[in-house]
Design a protein around this nucleic acid. Structure first.
Length: 352
DNA sequence: AATCCGGGGCC
DNA sequence: GGCCCAGGATT
């Protein structure tokens, strides 16, 4: 370990001891179930956004057996609005694995932990260090940033070479005699001092030997190689209403919002009005020769996702009792809709 | 190795 | 509008 690396580690530990006042419900927690749950919720999610979800999950499922025994629909409903819904599916699978195969005992080795669904290198290191004090360095967005700036590394973080380089460096500067404290410290430091924008360099104990600060490069590192391509999609949701019921289905195809529910979806390559839509072959096929009445329709509602912008409209159609259920759809009483998980754009619509 | 997967907050 | 967030799975 070089002098610079030792300085880096010691500084972070000292900063943590003297100046870190960040508090979170799972901090200092030793229960691996609670640590695991918080880490799954926090993947690509801000602490402030994930916090209330964590509280709700722990209240509803205080032990892993409760989560494992919960109906999938109920768990998805609790997850609703948090995004990246594969996390929810994987979380439930892992809970059932732990409760069943491991009889409720959380795996206590890095290999055992990382074999759980939805648990990758970061989450495994977090659980291993926080719950079992094993010497594995976490590598998340905070750590990438702190390392890239202090050591002046411009290798893109989203490449194989970058991941390898940062993983090695992170493990090297880990305080192996106190991995839990150190891992917590570097992430808190990245969130509080070495922030993405407007880092607090004037109050930073590392600044005197920080490469990026010395060279005025804090805004240029860490480097990412690729830029996002965002495409537009135009969704038209038909609320087919039959008395006090409406038709919904679960999304199962390989696309966004898998395992969430939705109304009848007509997607067009460009914006379309009610008339165009209702005359379209897909819609004529759906409605057949049955009578319907347009109850109302909304203007476009926008939802920004990472890779897509969704432009959605909602059109209410009233049909008679003889109308047959569309393929794959089930009628649900409108009072029962709150039992199903929907994408945010639908939740927003329903709340009006 | 590249791409996909949500929603929210900040500038 | 662009970037980032206690990343991971899939192709």
């Amino acid at each position: 370990m070089t002098d610079t690396k030792r300085f880096f580690t010691d500084c972070l530990l000292t900063w943590n001891r003297l100046h870190n006042s960040r508090s979170m419900p799972w901090k200092g927690e030793k229960n691996p179930y609670k640590i695991w749950l918080s880490e799954i919720i926090l993947q690509q999610t801000r602490v402030e956004q994930g916090w209330p979800y964590y509280e709700r999950f722990i209240t509803n499922y205080p032990v892993v057996e409760k989560l494992a025994a919960a109906p999938e629909e109920e768990v998805f409903r609790l997850w609703q609005g948090l995004g990246y819904y594969a996390r929810c599916k994987n979380m439930l699978a892992a809970a059932r694995e732990i409760a069943g195969k491991h009889k409720g005992a959380f795996p206590n080795t890095y290999e055992g932990i990382t074999s759980l669904k939805g648990v990758g290198a970061y989450t495994a290191a977090a659980i291993a260090s926080f719950a079992f004090n094993l010497p594995h360095a976490v590598l998340d967005g905070n750590v990438y940033r702190v390392l890239a700036r202090f050591f002046g590394i411009d290798t893109p973080t989203d490449t194989t070479a970058g991941k390898k380089l940062f993983t090695q460096l992170a493990q090297e500067v880990l305080a192996k005699d106190q991995p839990a404290t150190y891992n917590q410290a570097i992430m808190d430091f990245g969130a509080v001092v070495c922030k993405p924008q407007q880092p607090l360099c004037t109050a930073c104990p590392l600044a005197s030997r920080c490469e990026a600060h010395q060279k005025g490069l804090t805004d240029l590192v860490p480097v990412k190689s690729k830029k996002l391509v965002i495409k537009k999609r135009f969704f038209h949701y038909l609320l087919l209403e039959q008395q006090d019921h409406v038709y919904i289905r679960k999304r199962t195809e390989k696309d966004i919002w898998q395992n969430l529910h939705e109304f009848i979806l007509l997607e067009t390559p460009a914006p379309a009005n009610d008339t165009d839509l209702l005359q379209s072959p897909a819609c004529r096929r759906l409605l057949g020769k049955h009578r319907y009445r347009i109850v109302g329709s909304t203007a476009e509602i926008k939802q920004q996702l990472t890779h897509q912008t969704i432009h959605a409209r909602f059109i209410r159609l009233s049909v008679g009792a003889a109308f047959p259920a569309p393929d794959g759809f089930q009628p649900v009483a409108t009072t029962q809709l709150k039992k199903y998980a929907f994408p945010k754009i639908i939740v927003d619509y329903l709340q009006r």
